[in-house]
Simulated assay, not measured.
Amino acid sequence: MIVHLLRFAFREETTEEQKAEVLALMKRTASVESVSFATVGQNLGDASEGLTHAYCVGIEDLAAMERYMHDPVHLAGDPHIVPHFAKVVIGPDVSDDPDPELRTKIMALNEAKLAKYPDWARQMATIPDVRIF
């Protein structure tokens, strides 16, 4: 199992209604076939980090991770979600898979997605503060 964590903050100009829409879209993404379990909501971490919300999904394995990344529901939601992010912290993800190369393999899947979907790559580049752990 791969547990993928995304913590984030909305842009100042994002309204409460838009925040609710983004969270609903994220919940829809979290319900795709490749996701075993998920939670979307408030971030309970250190408030001084400025990360107000979190998205966490459990994905069975690397093959499911690839399906998740390319799922049409995921791809359709991102153009409506990403523009509202001011700050995103991805990870640290965790896994019970003992493969020491798993992180490298996941990052390679992400790089392949960036290459395959240049519009998505451009969208991701608009987020002012992105950190990957």
Rank of each mutant, 00 (worst) to 15 (best):
E66T: 14
N43G: 01
L6D: 01
L75P: 06
S31P: 08
F8H: 03
A108V: 03
K19R: 15
V35A: 04
Q18A: 08
H74G: 04
G58A: 10
V94W: 13
F133Y: 14
A63D: 15
D119F: 08
E13G: 03
I127L: 10
E13Y: 03
L44Q: 02
D96Q: 13
R28K: 15
I90G: 09
R28H: 09
P100S: 10
A115V: 09
R131L: 13
P79E: 04
V82T: 09
R122M: 10
H74R: 04
A30T: 06
A24V: 04
E13K: 05
E21H: 08
S95I: 13
V57F: 02
S34A: 15
K27R: 15
H84Y: 11
A86E: 10
C56L: 10
E13I: 00
A115F: 13
A125L: 13
Q123R: 13
M69T: 11
A9Q: 01
T52H: 07
E17S: 08
V89Q: 11
Y55H: 13
Y68I: 09
L62E: 13
L75I: 15
T52W: 00
A76G: 05
A30H: 08
A20R: 08
M26L: 15
D99V: 12
L25V: 04
K113E: 11
M124Y: 11
D97M: 11
M69G: 10
E66N: 13
A115Y: 06
I127G: 12
H84C: 10
H74C: 03
D129G: 03
M1F: 00
K105N: 09
A108R: 07
D119L: 12
H70A: 14
K19H: 02
C56I: 11
I59L: 09
L75Y: 12
D71V: 07
F37W: 12
G50R: 00
Y117C: 06
L51P: 01
G45R: 00
L23P: 01
E16H: 01
L109M: 08
F10I: 01
L23N: 02
A47Q: 05
A125R: 14
I59P: 08
D61H: 09
A108D: 12
K19A: 12
V130E: 11
A64H: 11
D119M: 09
V130C: 12
E60S: 07
A125Q: 15
P83Q: 05
L6M: 02
F37H: 07
V94A: 14
M124I: 10
L23M: 12
R7P: 00
L102M: 11
K113R: 13
I127P: 11
Y55F: 14
H74Y: 07
A76P: 05
A20C: 04
F8C: 02
L51S: 04
C56G: 01
M107V: 11
E21N: 07
E49T: 02
A38G: 04
P98C: 09
P92M: 11
H84I: 09
T104E: 14
M69A: 15
A86K: 06
D129A: 14
